Simulated scan of single mutants.
Amino acid sequence: MPPSRWSRAAAEAMDTDAIQAAMPSPPISGGAAADRIADALGTPNVIGEKAAVTAFVVRRFVDRGLLADLSANPDGTLHHPDQVDQVCRRKDLADLVAADTPLGPEQAAARLRVRRADFDHMVRLGWVRSPQSIEVRFGTSRAGAVDVALYTTASVDAIPAAHPEVDWEQLRAVEKGRRSPLASLRPAPAPA
């Protein structure tokens, strides 16, 4: 490893070690943080049932700067339990969780009251971006696995206001099998 990379990695490791040394208890996983947040909302996550709050929401809280990720693992997060408890005491916790709740493409299209094909054009146009995807398996084989993009509820809800040039009522009235009015639009050029 080049010296500059090693120095950065060593500094990050020392910061993590210092943080962990100052903690009264070990860090908790993103799943455990999600469980604490769900409990704080009065909607506990129950094994075997759809989770009220997921690790996806916890990752969005990290993106917002509400929680620090103490892990260098891209497949999971670790959090200071006191920081999670502090987030759980926020008066706007329910609103934050609702805004960061994941939606698949079908759910996003239904929320906007448009066809899935229209939502796919919105993605192509760059009107909404997926911060994370999940692997969904069909059957027991990896050959039947597909990646499904997830979108935050807030990012989906923001689309109509961000694009007033679209006649949303007309778009919502397009019948199945008809070409989307969004099909002829081109993505805006990327800023230089």
Rank of each mutant, 00 (worst) to 15 (best):
D100T: 05
A188N: 06
A32G: 14
A108K: 07
P44M: 04
K91F: 05
P164W: 10
V148E: 14
R115I: 02
L96E: 14
P131S: 01
V57H: 10
G65Y: 05
H163W: 05
A68L: 12
S130P: 00
P3S: 09
D82Y: 11
W168G: 01
S29V: 01
V136A: 12
A154C: 06
R116F: 09
L70I: 12
D157R: 14
F119R: 00
V84H: 05
S7C: 01
A9V: 00
R142G: 02
A21V: 06
R142P: 07
P26Y: 11
A154F: 09
I37D: 00
P74L: 01
G76H: 15
G31H: 15
L185M: 13
D92W: 06
P164V: 04
R137T: 14
G42N: 07
G139S: 07
R178M: 08
D157Y: 09
M23E: 15
P74S: 11
D69F: 04
H80A: 14
G65W: 11
D69K: 10
A40S: 11
L78V: 00
A22L: 11
V148F: 05
L182N: 01
L78M: 14
P81A: 02
P3C: 01
A34E: 02
D69Q: 09
R129M: 08
T54P: 02
D63V: 02
P164S: 03
S141H: 10
R64T: 07
G139V: 06
T77V: 11
V166Y: 12
A22H: 10
V146G: 00
T54E: 14
A109D: 07
G104I: 01
A108Q: 04
T16F: 01
D95W: 13
L41C: 05
D17Q: 07
L67R: 13
P81T: 04
G48R: 07
D120Q: 10
T16V: 14
A143D: 12
W168I: 02
T43M: 09
E135Q: 13
M1I: 00
F56R: 02
R137V: 06
A173M: 08
M1Q: 01
G31D: 10
K176Y: 13
R124K: 12
T101C: 02
Q86G: 13
R36H: 06
P105A: 13
R113Y: 02
V58W: 04
A158M: 03
P187K: 09
V46Y: 09
T16Q: 15
L150S: 04
P187L: 03
A34P: 06
H121M: 08
G31Q: 14
A173T: 10
I134S: 09
R115T: 01
T140A: 14
R64P: 04
A162F: 06
L96P: 00
E169L: 11
R60S: 13
E49N: 08
A190H: 09
A33W: 05
R89S: 11
R129Q: 12
P74D: 12
A161H: 09
L171K: 05
A183M: 07
P2W: 00
E175A: 15
D85C: 02
A72M: 06
T101N: 07
I134M: 10
A183E: 10
V166N: 08
A190V: 13
E12C: 00
A109N: 03
D39M: 09
K176P: 00
T43Y: 08
A72C: 10
D85N: 11
